[in-house]
Design a protein around this nucleic acid. Structure first.
Lengths: 241, 241
DNA sequence: GATTGATAAATTGTATGCAAATGTGAGCCG
DNA sequence: CGGCTCACATTTGCATACAATTTATCAATC
């Protein structure tokens, strides 16, 4: 399931496929395709918070009946991406700034927990993979390619999740991270954020190399809270316009 | 006639949850009632892991059609309580010992994170509520009432979640904790576990009282890992029989 | 002009029907 | 006797139909 989300988002990032009837596999369930499509649109912000999701309208859009649409919506409601009020329809989850900050704090704590565990448990192979990823990101910062950096960033953090050798924790981390996808991306466009992000990664890598999980953990928390602060600034800034 | 008995039993089971269901009986969605019922049965272990969940069978049992049953099952699949294989039906999630241990470790880390944040952020009112809860648990240990202690334990830990003043984190913690409900209960029945559990709570309360979040955090992690160890022993023990 | 009530329209929730896929077992061949 | 094939039963996935509830409309009243 989480795998599907990843696939959908990667595909979404590579090319802007509007519908899903293109080359989508006939073997995949219609309800899953609809769920993935909506997940993607909510995560990327294409569907704004508060938007009402009319079942028939969605059904028409996806060329399906209401049944698979409803099944997709119910799944999204469990992930917290939409809110279902009984007999009153579904809306894209409306998130208050407080809630976003709560989510950021949670993801910061979970990430810092992950990197601590990962530092103690990662195999040499995993460590070298992480180093490789980090090294490659230098180019992305120079070119200032936000999309590419966002994708790298995702890979970097997910590599850490998996290095915890706790697959359940990794899944949780990915799920929560995906829910913040839309906001994280926005945050990256704050000036200098790319450079700073990479510098913070550098510090984390240093701690990992020294095998100091506690320090890696503290630095990761700082890294994530910096991202949250950048986001807050971004939100405040867009309020003024 | 048999059909009526089954329906009565289901309604009875739902009704025992809490009294306010009666009034809201018709207002609650059928799919939600089915989901809650299945959630409960899986969490308590009434529905064993690996059990196949036939849609028509469930529909008959709940006196509904397949549509709300399918919607309920799809929601449960997101929570990870059941596994859906496309066109091959749904089974109650089969959990390997490794996965259970992963989940325990995750919940241990999250709990320790919560108690750290809670120590720094809780209001005097919240602190006194927690002390009250903890004090009351002494009696439960003496009488050796596992069910009552399990309920107290839940209240104790949830009080800590809320004291983090991070509602998203609290929700996550509760969700994960619920998924482990069936196993946690089993673990409590290990000899001396009740006494030890309370002693560990005592140590945590001490650290909270001193305002030392880091120590509270370490003690909470130890507390949770002790529970995990007790569970592992319980599992090993039941393997031998 | 605002409010209320009834009525109509729209939308959600549930049931049922049908097509396609999967699983099963008897019969056949090696 | 074991493995394979093909028809058949079962079950899932989706569409459609119907019922129930909410929302919108609008006229009458205060």
């Amino acid at each position: 399931m989480i795998f599907c989300i990843q696939v959908a988002m990667v595909i979404g990032a590579l090319g802007t496929m509007d519908g899903l009837d293109d080359a989508a596999d006939d073997r995949e369930l219609l309800s899953d395709r609809i769920r993935n499509a909506l997940e993607d649109e909510i995560a990327t912000g294409k569907l704004e918070a508060g938007t009402a999701l009319d079942e028939q309208q969605l059904a028409d859009r996806f060329g399906a009946s209401r049944t698979p649409v409803r099944e997709a919506l119910r799944q999204l409601s469990v992930s917290g991406l939409v809110e279902m009020r009984a007999r009153r329809g579904v809306v894209v989850a409306r998130m208050t700034p407080e809630r976003i900050m709560d989510m950021f704090e949670t993801v910061a704590e979970i990430e810092s927990m992950c990197v601590r565990l990962a530092t103690y448990r990662m195999t040499p192979l995993e460590r070298s993979h992480l180093i490789e990823l980090h090294d490659a990101s230098e180019t992305l910062v120079k070119t200032g390619d936000f999309d590419a950096y966002d994708m790298f960033n995702r890979a970097f953090h997910e590599a850490i999740y998996h290095a915890t050798h706790n697959s359940f924790l990794a899944e949780q981390a990915i799920t929560i991270r995906n829910r913040l996808a839309a906001f994280r991306r926005a945050q990256l466009q704050q000036e200098q954020r790319l450079e700073r992000s990479r510098a913070e990664h550098e510090a984390i890598m240093q701690a990992i190399a020294e095998g100091d999980g506690e320090m890696a953990s503290r630095r990761m928390r700082a890294h994530m809270l910096n991202a949250a602060t950048a986001l807050r600034r971004f939100i405040e800034a867009s309020k003024l316009t």
